[in-house]
C-alpha cells in the first residue's frame, strides 16, 4: 500500500508545535529534531497515499513523496518513544536498473550490520514534489537519537560501503547530492505499530 511523507518547512517564527497539532489526520505529525539537513521543520507521515497538506501561509516549502515499499523489516515491532528518520533521495536519471537494484539491496542490508536500526523500510517514489524528483524514501526507526547519530553514522557498512552511491568522488556515484535528511521523535512506531 502506498505511503506519504511530507517534510514541511515553515516561515521563520511560525509555531511548529501548533502547526503539527492542527494537521489532524496523520500517522505522524511531529516537529523535527536538531541536526536535520534540508529536513524541514516538521514531518507529516501517512500510511496511505493521502497527499493533503493543510493550506497555510506559514508554509515556506514542502518536500514530499508518495511511495510504494520495496523492502523492509522489524527488529522491534511496536517500538515506543523512539526516533523516526526519513531520507528522501533522487537517483540520477539514466542510472541502469541493475545498478539501482544493487543500491537498493545494499541499502536494505544496513540493518543487518547496524543494530541500532530497529525497524526500516525502503520505498520507490511514485509521485514527488519539492527540491528534486525524489526516487526513493529510506525510513528507519531507532530506540533513541544516539542510535542514529552514533552507530548509524559510524558503522563502516555505512561510510565504507553504502555511501559510495552518494559520494561524487566515487565512480559508483548515482544519488543527487541534494538530500532531505530528517528525523523526529515518535510515541508509537510509524513503520511497525
Amino acid at each position: 500500500m502506498a505511503k506519504f511523507t511530507a517534510l514541511i518547512t515553515l516561515q521563520p517564527g511560525a509555531d511548529r508545535d501548533a502547526f503539527a497539532r492542527n494537521i489532524g489526520d496523520a500517522t505522524l505529525a511531529q516537529p523535527t529534531l536538531p541536526g536535520v539537513f534540508d529536513g524541514g521543520d516538521l514531518i507529516l507521515h501517512r500510511q496511505v497515499a493521502n497527499e493533503a497538506v493543510p493550506s497555510d501561509a506559514a508554509i515556506a516549502h514542502i518536500d514530499s513523496a508518495v511511495y510504494e515499499p520495496i523492502g523492509g523489516g522489524a527488529h522491534e515491532p511496536g517500538l515506543r518513544n523512539g526516533v523516526y528518520r526519513c531520507l528522501l533521495l533522487a537517483v540520477k536519471p539514466g542510472t541502469p536498473e541493475a545498478t539501482v537494484r544493487q543500491f537498493e539491496s545494499e541499502t536494505l542490508a544496513m540493518p543487518h550490520y547496524i543494530g541500532t536500526i530497529r525497524n526500516w523500510r525502503l520505498s520507490r517514489v511514485t509521485k514527488a514534489s519539492g527540491a528534486r524528483v525524489w526516487t526513493h524514501v529510506w525510513e528507519q526507526e531507532y530506540a533513541d537519537i544516539g542510535g542514529l547519530l552514533g552507530p548509524y553514522m559510524t558503522n563502516p557498512y555505512h561510510w565504507a560501503r553504502v555511501d559510495r552511491w552518494f559520494d561524487p568522488e566515487c565512480p559508483e556515484w548515482i544519488v543527487d547530492t541534494r538530500l532531505c535528511h530528517s528525523f523526529c521523535a515518535f510515541e508509537r512506531s510509524v513503520l511497525n505499530p
Binding site: 559510524t154 565504507a160 559520494d167 561524487p168 568522488e169
Partner: peptide, 13 residues
C-alpha cells in the same frame, strides 16, 4: 577513524 572519514567526506562535498 570514522570521524576523520566523515570530515573528509563533508569537506569534499
Amino acid at each position: 577513524g570514522a570521524a576523520g572519514w566523515w570530515g573528509m567526506r563533508l569537506a569534499a562535498g
